[in-house]
Nucleic acid binder design. Structure first.
Lengths: 238, 238
DNA sequence: TCGAGGAATTGCGCTGGCGCAAAGACGGGG
DNA sequence: CCCCGTCTTTGCGCCAGCGCAATTCCTCGA
């Protein structure tokens, strides 16, 4: 009864995949989990890996990248603690559609596909939570797809930064810091543009005092202005 | 026992949402369903509707469109019989992220959100099927997102046509006909481009004998060439 | 402290694709 | 059968954003 894995429960409770489940079910789920630690720069999995493991991040930050056959890469998603990942591979296809890289030292609880299915059959609430999560993620991707199809680059970069702020933003005195190293290349890959264009846009914002970047650290000074750019509002002069 | 709704079972069996369920479960599910008919040009639902109904198309074709606040519209998806829709609204958010228009006279089985949740709790297989479906759809959208972010217009249009062929293509003597009226505007909205560019590309292909269009009917004469364009292979001369 | 290798910036030229406008093709209704 | 409205095509001009190259800036390791 003093299974060391029971300490995982604290992580489980923070994740919305496990929301609404009773304590004893959480214990059962925790006992089936395995904790996987990955150092900064290493990968939970690579695109194309024939894997079948569902993860819930307990600490750190993970970036998901897809590379095209031509070598372009696209940054699909960035997550923080509590988020589920590896879902597409574990529940649908057997291949990971993207690579998951730990941006900082990270750890995740892991269940293999057969286990998670068994748990879901026994506790349908778990399956319903997962469905809800996937449905929302799908809606998000549809929105981003539309964004990419209809908006100019500057607006897309603004949206990308706002999304990052919401996911991994930390409020500090003079703004919100994005708690994740993001190079100009990363920003380009998140917004469907090139390194050069992303750099120009960020420089422009920097000179207007909207953001400040030191190295790969981005600090958003005026989120309202970013919002205005994202929504294509007439620019507020001051 | 001779509930007229039992005839819906034939439809259920064709849908992969219900794959692997026993006969008696199908009967239970069928009895909870309601059939909704929608005439050509009418809508199952509109974007933003606060709806909570899950559908499985039994006949017809449905187009899903999202409109931006600025008035651009994007064609997200086209489906034929057997496919589930309304999922995002029924299982996740309470609002439809897109409008679903019947392109031809159509009919769909419908369950409200509470019913489907109850059925899924009782029959976890149903939830697992739905998860698998959403996971695959999410992977598809990630791919399309990447496509939009990295590929030129011509390739994207080629991909869009190939996707349509697979969904609603009918093999005929000299090629594959896309069994759905698609205007140039529709093609543009599926590929993230403008009516003009889509028209130019289609005209180009028509003069090279790759496709033929009569009115809104598209006939693909040389799928291999389309594939070659989509994959950016060196063009095969003949 | 210095040097080397990446990352970021910015000037410059180019072009894919946008968007307007005008003309043409088509089809449905009266 | 013809007219009107809608869809399509195509010429043309333009510009957002790409992509290269040169320079500067940072960072990290020795």
């Amino acid at each position: 009864m003093d299974d060391p894995k029971l300490k995982y429960i604290a992580y489980l409770e923070g994740s919305y995949l496990f929301h609404g489940l009773e304590r004893e079910v959480l214990e059962e789920i925790a006992r089936e989990a395995r904790l996987r630690r990955v150092q900064a720069g290493a990968y939970f999995f690579h695109q194309g890996d024939p894997a079948a493991v569902l993860y819930v991040l307990s600490e750190g930050r993970v970036k998901f990248t897809q590379v095209t056959p031509e070598g372009h890469s696209v940054l699909l998603r960035v997550i923080g603690p509590g988020e589920m990942f590896g879902t597409v591979a574990a529940l649908g296809d057997a291949q990971h559609p993207a690579s998951g890289e730990a941006a900082v030292p990270s750890a995740a609880l892991a269940w293999n596909s057969a286990t998670i299915r068994r748990l879901m059959e026994r506790h349908p609430r778990l399956a319903l939570n997962a469905l809800r999560f996937l449905a929302e993620r799908l809606a998000e991707f549809q929105d981003r797809y539309r964004e990419l199809a209809t908006q100019r680059v500057e607006r897309r970069v603004a949206h990308a930064l706002l999304r990052l702020m919401r996911k991994v933003g930390l409020a500090v005195g003079d703004g919100v810091i994005i708690d994740l190293a993001m190079s100009r290349q990363d920003i380009a890959e998140m917004s469907g543009t090139t390194l050069f264009t992303a750099s120009r846009i960020m420089s422009g914002w920097e000179s207007r005092g909207i953001v400040r970047t030191e190295h790969a650290r981005i600090l958003v000074l005026k989120p309202e202005q970013l919002e205005a750019i994202a929504e294509d509002m007439p620019l507020l002069e001051e």
